[in-house]
């Protein structure tokens, strides 16, 4: 390949999945109790996309990774401390809400408009990455709409593997039903890949990389444009946390034979 890839990864913050979440009625619709105080992490599937992008860029000369994040500026700044040492990227930040009850359509519009203005981005070399769904809205629709707005008509959802071939084509594995993969070959960029977990472990921290990244991250955060993202046209009638507490019966003193009989009875019921 004579030219490398321009990799744009869309990814933002979500509440740490170990936290208990409680919905409240906010001024502009539903929100999370103490949303701004909840510890946040990089949206997990978008995180996989970022690590895959960084890996691909490192293996392909003349490539570059941008991370486009729409979230509250202060929370983004905290997040960057944890991800800057993990992957080489340039941050492009948008200051706006990142909660689950915002509309995917509006988020996609903000992201696409922002990507169009990235200086030096060559859209003919673009691999647009993101997660296959967020851990907040969990819709799995945003990346396709960003792709449409950027007029990319080769799109892949729930990707676990993306491999450039010697002839310039790209081989892609997408998760489909019943634990199988669809294998496709795309002629080359531009394309959209919304990632599932991919194949790479979370990279270890590299302090030097972190410092290098932070040099461009701080100005990017200062420059973050406000993004007005809400849920126009949507009316939430109710948001509830379903009761799912069970009265667990703990079987401790029975013999293995007794437990096995009970389990088999239950399976056959």
């Amino acid at each position: 390949m004579s030219q490398g890839f321009h990799l744009v990864v869309c990814g933002s913050i979500v509440p740490d999945p170990l936290q208990t979440l409680e919905p409240i009625q906010g001024a502009e619709g539903p929100a999370l109790k103490n949303e701004m105080m909840l510890p946040a992490v990089l949206d997990p599937w978008a995180g996989h996309a970022l690590y895959e992008a960084a890996h691909l860029a490192a293996a392909t000369p003349d490539s570059k990774v941008w991370l486009v994040s729409l979230g509250p500026r202060a929370k983004l700044q905290q997040l960057m401390m944890t991800i800057a040492p993990k992957a080489a990227f340039e941050l492009v930040a948008l200051d706006g809400p990142a909660g689950g009850f915002t509309e995917a359509w509006e988020t996609a519009e903000a992201l696409a408009e922002c990507i169009k203005t990235i200086p030096g981005l060559d859209r003919s070399r673009l691999l647009l990455f993101g997660g296959c769904a967020s851990a907040s809205r969990d819709a799995g629709v945003t990346m396709q709409m960003v792709g449409e707005r950027l007029e990319i008509s080769d799109q892949f959802l729930a990707v676990d593997e993306l491999t450039p071939q010697e002839n310039g084509t790209i081989r892609i594995l997408e998760r489909i039903e019943a634990g199988r993969y669809q294998v496709s070959e795309c002629a080359g960029p531009p394309l959209v890949a919304a990632w599932a977990t991919g194949r790479l472990p979370e990279p270890p921290n590299n302090a030097q990389l972190g410092m290098q990244n932070m040099r461009s991250i701080m100005p990017a955060l200062q420059k973050a444009q406000p993004a007005r993202v809400g849920a126009e046209g949507v009316e939430f009638l109710e948001v509830e946390v379903p009761k799912q507490r069970r009265n667990t019966r703990v079987v401790e003193d029975a013999s293995v034979d007794e437990m096995a009989r009970e389990i088999v009875e239950w399976i056959r019921k």
């Binding site: 509440p15 999945p17 979440l21 919905p23 539903p30 689950g100 009850f101 851990a135 907040s136 809205r137 969990d138 949507v234 009316e235 939430f236 009638l237 109710e238 948001v239 509830e240 946390v241 379903p242």
Partner: peptide
């Protein structure tokens, strides 16, 4: 929403 943590009617 939030990976099966909340159910919304809308």
């Amino acid at each position: 929403y939030y990976r099966q943590r909340m159910l919304a009617t809308m």
